[in-house]
Structures are given as C-alpha cells and as structure tokens.
C-alpha cells in the first residue's frame, strides 16, 4: 500500500510538472493522475533490453559523428562514461526512457544547450 501511495504521489508531481493545470484545480489533477496510474498498470510494453539500449546509444553517437556533429557525439560519449560510476540496476531503463523521448537530436540538438 505504501508503495502504491508513493507512486500515486510521484504521478501527482508528474502531472503538476508537465501540465499547466492550476494548483487549485485538484479534482482535474487527480483525474489525470488516476488515468495515468491506470495506463501505467495496463500497458503492454516489454521489459527494457539493455543491450538494445547500448546499441541504440552507440548508433546515435556514430550518427552524430557521421553528420559532422562531432562535439555532440563527444559530449554524449563523455556523459555516458560519466554515468558509469553511478550505474544502478535502473540505469538501462532510465536511458531507454530518454531514448523514447529523444526528439531528432542529430538534427535539432545544440552543443550550447
């Protein structure tokens, strides 16, 4: 029960962070939170394959270099190396999550960011 309550609280925080629903509209926020919890429980996605994640990241790094965006490729490699001492059992899943949200990085990312 404590775990579900904690996940519920995190989901509420997520709704607050991502949507523009005003803080005083608690019923609306709760509605979103409950819908999200339902979808997270009923999804059919498979478990993360950490080797596929590593392959995808290596491919992206190469893609940066092939298209002349060497600074970004190098920056990605440096950050992936830097995360290694902090690696946990969840690191592959977190990287998988980031890859799912990646928005054309080779085309749109800027090293200045």
């Amino acid at each position: 029960m404590a775990h579900l309550a904690h996940l519920g609280a995190l989901t509420g925080d997520l709704v607050a962070a991502v949507t523009a629903i005003p803080e005083n509209q608690t019923a609306r926020r709760d509605e979103y939170r409950d819908a999200i919890l339902q979808s997270l429980r009923s999804h059919r996605f498979t478990r993360t394959n950490q080797f596929e994640v590593e392959k995808h990241l290596r491919g992206l790094e190469e893609h940066f270099h092939v298209l002349g965006r060497d600074a970004l490729g190098e920056a990605l490699r440096q950050r992936l190396n830097a995360i290694e001492p902090h690696r946990t059992q969840f690191t592959p899943e977190i990287l998988h999550f980031l890859l799912e949200l990646a928005d054309q990085p080779v085309k749109k990312s800027n090293i200045s960011d």
Partner: peptide
C-alpha cells in the same frame, strides 16, 4: 544526456520520472 538527446525534460520532471522508474514503472509506458 536528456538535453543532448533533445528530450525537452527539465531537471525536476526528469527527477520525478527517475523515481517512478525506480519504483517499477515501465520506461516506455
């Protein structure tokens, strides 16, 4: 890394998502 990948995630939202994944939430979902 999220910035390099152009994920449009601020640090707070990312932190929340990391906690959710560490609590068993599927990353693709």
């Amino acid at each position: 890394i999220a910035t390099i990948l152009n994920c449009h995630l601020d640090r707070r939202t990312l932190s929340i998502c990391i906690s959710m994944i560490e609590n068993g939430v599927n990353p693709e979902a």
